[in-house]
Design a protein around this nucleic acid. Structure first.
Lengths: 304, 304
DNA sequence: TAAAAATACTCCATAGGTATTTTAT
DNA sequence: ATAAAATACCTATGGAGTATTTTTA
């Protein structure tokens, strides 16, 4: 038995008329009669009682009619499913975010994906540092990462989606909070709070900025993440240069200020470079529409 | 797409090896490769990532693998269903019983059907008089009836399954209750209780028996059914000749006695005579095993 | 280099077409 | 008498076979 038989049978059962059914199937009536006969032979069951004037379903035919409709629908659904999976419009994406990106970019991304790829589910892995994301991508437990280059390693593709300036975070009663313009040299004597992770891209950018201004930051405290870091600042234990997106995480007692000559850190998408998955590709398409990657517009666009 | 494609695909997906799969399908490897390629083309989706050393399912392939297994199972189930319906081993039989047959025969029949045709459901229509059953059979609302011939009419097939002698039902304090042997003539002066229905086969048999004994019964009361009839006897309002199966319905104050020269009534199966349904046929087979129809053994066999 | 999938080609089985017959109303 | 399904017969597509090539681990 083939689907052909079920398609033919369903049509004859719908019309109860071999001639009409054949027409609907764009075929000749004898071929249809033969196919139905063949099906009946294989099943060992009469499906129709036919006279030249009347075709009626037998009980077995009635049953098969229901089943055939169900099965043909099911086939059609499966085909659609396969197509959508192959086009990357159906499936699960395991996506990771660094601490700060989780606050600013995750909502945008989640919203855009829900709108443009409604059948793609996101499995969010929040607050993952860059090295952990790289590991996850490489061992296949992650599909996409929002991380801070350049310490990526082999086997991963990277696309920078944003260059964020470093902003100064100080206690609200700090002397610099009142200054109209702040330069890196103003920070020469300040106690710095840095990230605890060994090869933090932010730390590197901070140290690089300080060096360019002619000093090394006084590393007063380490924080395991941005939340703790800001809390330490609110407590008056020091200042920090953080990615501008940290502003999305307001905390009483902390003020953010621009620093004219501070450096910047990149935020990038990363994924396995081999065996490009259609899901990741379509995700990248959507995210490309969300973030402008050319250097002329380093800040994110508003959602369309 | 044809079921062939799904069968082939499922086998390749199971083995992840075209050569092995082809072997399992009793076909050559190139034909299999071609069929899978054809499926992929039609779906517009890669189902496998293949190198000469390794065949692996893509996400779309993984999805289709599940779906294909489900669908092929479903096809197999439907085929079995069709076969069993065509063999009369699956379905619903609407079966009717006359008042007394409901008590004695329904349990046996239900038990036998449950044992021999476990997937046949019975829709019981109890306490239906013969004419009502004939109507139901003719208009298609019944499939099988247990009724009392001969008033059947055209278009129905009948098979007598039992000839029941008429038994005498008398109040337990009645003079005949103590007699060792009873003959029809003993009833000449008794007040009779008969069935109310106009052409009751039992009434006819009773009247015939009385006539043969040389008298007409004194029709004292009419009862709409056996239960009421026995109640009237218990109340001392008269006597009655009832089918022996009424003994299955014992009632305090009523005694059943054999009458040597009383007549008998038939109990028969009836069904539509055209368009013999497989279900009815298989039911008749089962019931034939339950009741002996040849005249040498007019009483029912014990269940095997 | 060896195992396995893809390609090239060939063939025949059969799906489906046309012409005609049968049948029931 | 006629509509409609069945039958008879034919054709050609394409499914499956054999032989060979390509590929990568």
């Amino acid at each position: 038995m083939e689907l052909r038989h079920l398609r033919y049978f369903a049509t004859v059962a719908d019309t109860c008329h071999f001639g009409r059914a054949a027409e609907r199937l764009h075929m000749a009536q004898p071929a249809l009669s033969q196919a139905i006969r063949q099906l009946e032979d294989e099943l060992g069951a009469a499906l129709f009682t036919r006279t030249t004037r009347q075709v009626r379903l037998t009980p077995a035919g009635e049953f098969l009619h229901e089943e055939a409709k169900r099965m043909l629908d099911s086939v059609e659904e499966s085909v659609q499913g396969v197509r959508r999976i192959a086009q990357g419009r159906l499936g699960l994406v395991r996506i990771a975010f660094t601490g700060t990106a989780g606050f600013t970019h995750l909502p945008q991304i989640a919203r855009a994906v829900k709108r443009e790829l409604p059948d793609v589910a996101l499995e969010i892995h929040g607050d993952m540092l860059t090295p952990a994301q790289c590991d996850g991508l490489r061992n296949g437990s992650l599909d996409l990462g929002l991380l801070r280059p350049p310490a990526i390693g082999e086997g991963l593709s990277v696309r920078t989606i944003e260059v964020e300036p470093l902003a100064l975070a100080v206690p609200s009663d700090h002397r610099l909070a009142a200054e109209p313009v702040i330069a890196m040299t103003d920070l020469r004597t300040e106690p710095f709070i840095l990230y605890a992770s060994p090869d933090s891209a932010v730390n590197e950018a901070v140290v690089r900025s300080c060096k360019q201004a002619g000093f090394l930051p006084h590393r007063e405290h380490d924080a395991p993440g941005t939340a703790v870091l800001l809390a330490l600042i609110a407590a008056g234990l020091g200042v920090a240069l953080v990615p501008a997106s940290a502003r999305a995480m307001p905390l009483a007692g902390v003020v953010f200020r621009e620093v004219a000559d501070a450096g910047s850190v990149e935020l990038a998408l990363a994924w396995r470079e081999n065996r490009e998955s259609a899901l990741v590709t379509s995700m990248l398409d959507v995210l490309d529409g969300l973030f402008t990657t050319d250097s002329s517009r380093p800040v994110q666009k508003a959602t369309r």
